[in-house]
Design a protein around this nucleic acid. Structure first.
Length: 587
RNA sequence: GCGCCCGUAGCUCAACCGGACAGAGCAUCGGCCUUCUAAGCCGAGGGUUGCAGGUUCGAGUCCUGCCGGGCGCGCCA
């Protein structure tokens, strides 16, 4: 049981007693907030319950606080309780309680900070879900790091987590990709191809085209004149959308269904495999690569539309099938099935959402890039249409990351194909720094990613600073062995009371805070809190190291200090693990 | 035009359901030092939380309006 919960229980019992005695009205059920204090003078924990009760009971808050303290049951963990400020109740923990964290950490090891708070509820975390039309870029990287870390947090706090990537392998963009590949193939085989302005221009398209050549030789080749037969002009003279759609049509006609799909699938698989490798190397786990096409093939879209139709939420107009979004407060109704018989993305959204629910997800988390925030409303309407409680759907938006090198912004533009890929970033700064820097800021904040800092081996680099704290502790233990000593764990525990230095007190507090922090970070979907915490903990360790020698001659004190820093090492490792960052033994 | 997000120290960012004196790092300034491997350590200055109202015992946090920045609006995906 967390001390926080213990204190909450004590306060509750006090209030119950006061209600029983008629000192407080029996009908109030106060929300008892226990929080860590910001400064030591205010003790370890505080509650504002007297302030909140003062109003409803029309009593003086300080006086009420005194009364609550009088009714508070004794507990060995609490040394002193005080009224402070306008009516806060401050709790000072007993020394033995404060020190006990060392034992807890070492006992629980890599499980310290984990909990069963989630009660086994299933949470579906969908993230990245970039169209497989090219390699992931640095924008996707932030979503990947955020989603992966959030999933790790949920996992650690007792939720069943589905980590999911929605593979858009069905729509028009994929047809543009397949056609782009085929055109590059023709170009490589000597055709005088004029590449469409709306096609995918990246170099990787050539690589895929070469794979096509390796597999199919010149079987898929057709003369350029025939390819462009009847195709309207490209921009600027014509409409680039019409132009590319016509080219797609020609590709399908000339290649036939089978060969067209061969090109399509080959392109898709090469890119998707690349994305899978990329994420795996980035320590981003994905349990389910959910294919949009599979949804269509399994009649999932029809299934979802049937559901909406049964609920009388659809109607037909102008040959299309519409969803009555206005009934739910949208400014206009939304098309489910176009006049040409093709279903819309909104229909796929509904189908996929329904599918997630049918696979057992209680909560749906959609991690979106901020540029996709226009979909949020639509998705929420889909949820309402399908009868999903709005509280069971969350759509955190991850803002853009801007790269800086040499103090200057790295220019990027998807349109011109001038984007930095996630793989380039990882190769540049390393996986550890990339993971850490990505989640170091609140996800709703624009991120300035300083590439030079991320690479630097100095204390200014927070990743280095934290990892170094871990390695430094390992180094102390190597030194211990070199001196021919060893740690006596039991003696260390028995001598914890020798640890009375302010640096040691600070570490007790920091270590004890960790499980609460993990819960808060999970609950608020704010993994950056872990990064900030680890930086603070590392700072506590380094200042302690600078102020005191651990390997002192006096064995009792030495063992106690070694137990303490071993606990610090454990918590740093646990925290870094949640972030997907390694904890090196030496640097 | 409508909608969403953001605005906190010179810079990059924190601030747990609305709590106590708004905190870190970098940079700046002033000292110290050569250590369980680390040019590091200790300390100081720096703020009308974009502006103006409102709610509250209490607002960086909630509400309204404005200013500034980013993004989005489709029978595209």
């Amino acid at each position: 049981m967390l001390v926080k919960d213990l204190l909450q229980d004590l306060v509750k019992r006090a209030l119950d007693a006061m209600q029983g005695d008629g000192v407080l009205p029996g009908d109030l059920s106060p929300n008892i907030q226990i929080e860590r204090t910001r400064s030591k003078e205010h003790g370890d924990f505080a509650t504002n319950v007297a302030l909140t009760l003062a109003k409803v009971t029309k009593r003086n808050p300080r006086e009420l606080a005194e009364a609550i303290i009088d009714a508070l049951p004794e507990d060995a963990a609490v040394e002193k309780v005080e009224v402070a400020g306008p009516g806060f109740i401050n709790f000072f923990l007993a020394g033995i309680e404060r020190r006990s964290v060392v034992e807890r950490v070492l006992e629980q090891g890599n499980q310290y900070g984990h909990s069963t708070q989630g009660g086994g509820q299933t949470v579906n975390v969908e993230f990245v879900s970039a169209n497989p039309t090219g390699p992931l870029h640095v924008g996707h990287g932030r979503g990947a790091a955020y989603g992966a870390t959030l999933a790790n947090l949920l996992d650690a706090t007792g939720y069943k987590v589905q980590r999911e990537y929605y593979v858009n392998d069905y729509g028009r963009q994929m047809n543009i990709l397949a056609t782009s590949v085929w055109l590059r193939y023709l170009e490589r085989n000597g055709e005088p191809v004029v590449f469409p302005s709306n096609g995918y221009r990246g170099d990787y398209i050539y690589d895929i085209a070469d794979t096509i050549t390796a597999r199919f030789g010149d079987e898929l080749q057709h003369p350029w004149d025939l390819v462009t037969e009847g195709v309207p002009a490209d921009a600027p003279d014509g409409d680039k959308e019409v132009h590319i759609d016509a080219l797609i049509g020609r590709a399908k006609t000339l290649l036939g269904d089978t060969d067209y799909m061969n090109v399509f699938d080959l392109a898709l698989n090469i890119i998707l495999d690349d994305i899978k490798d990329d994420l795996r190397e980035f320590r981003v786990e994905v349990n389910c690569w959910f294919s949009e096409r599979s949804l269509e093939e399994a009649d999932g879209i029809k299934h979802a539309i049937d559901r909406l139709r049964e609920a009388d939420q659809t109607y037909e107009k102008d040959g299309a099938l519409w969803f009555r979004a206005t009934d739910f407060g949208d400014d206009k109704d939304r098309v489910l099935v176009r006049a040409n018989g093709q279903s819309t993305y909104f229909a796929s959204d509904c189908a996929y959402m329904l599918n997630k629910r049918e696979r057992g997800a209680d909560t749906l988390i959609y991690v979106f890039g901020a540029d996709h925030h226009g979909y949020v409303t639509r998705l929420r309407f889909a949820g309402r249409a399908l009868g999903i409680n709005p509280d069971d759907m969350e759509i955190p938006l991850v803002q853009f990351a801007t790269l800086y090198r040499g103090g200057k912004k790295v220019q990027m533009s998807t349109r011109s194909g001038q984007f930095v890929t996630l793989r380039e970033l990882r190769n540049d700064v390393g996986n550890d720094a990339a993971r850490f820097f990505y989640i170091m800021r609140g996800h709703e904040q624009h991120l300035e990613f300083d590439l030079d800092l991320a690479k630097s081996q100095s204390n200014d680099n927070p990743v280095y600073y934290i990892q170094y704290a871990h390695a430094r502790i390992c180094s102390v233990f190597r030194e211990l062995a070199e001196k021919g000593w060893s740690r006596d764990a039991d003696a260390g525990m028995a001598n914890l009371e020798l640890l009375g230095e302010s640096h040691e007190e600070a570490l007790f507090t920091s270590l004890a805070r960790y499980p609460e922090l993990v819960l808060t970070a999970t609950h608020n979907r704010t993994p950056h809190m872990i990064a900030h915490y680890l930086r603070d903990l590392a700072n506590d360790l380094h200042t302690y190291y600078n102020a005191h020698k651990f390997l002192v001659d006096e064995a009792g004190l030495r063992d106690a200090r070694l137990n303490l820093i071993l606990a610090v090492k454990q918590v740093i490792a646990n925290g870094l693990d949640l972030l997907g960052v390694s904890a090196p033994e030496s640097m």
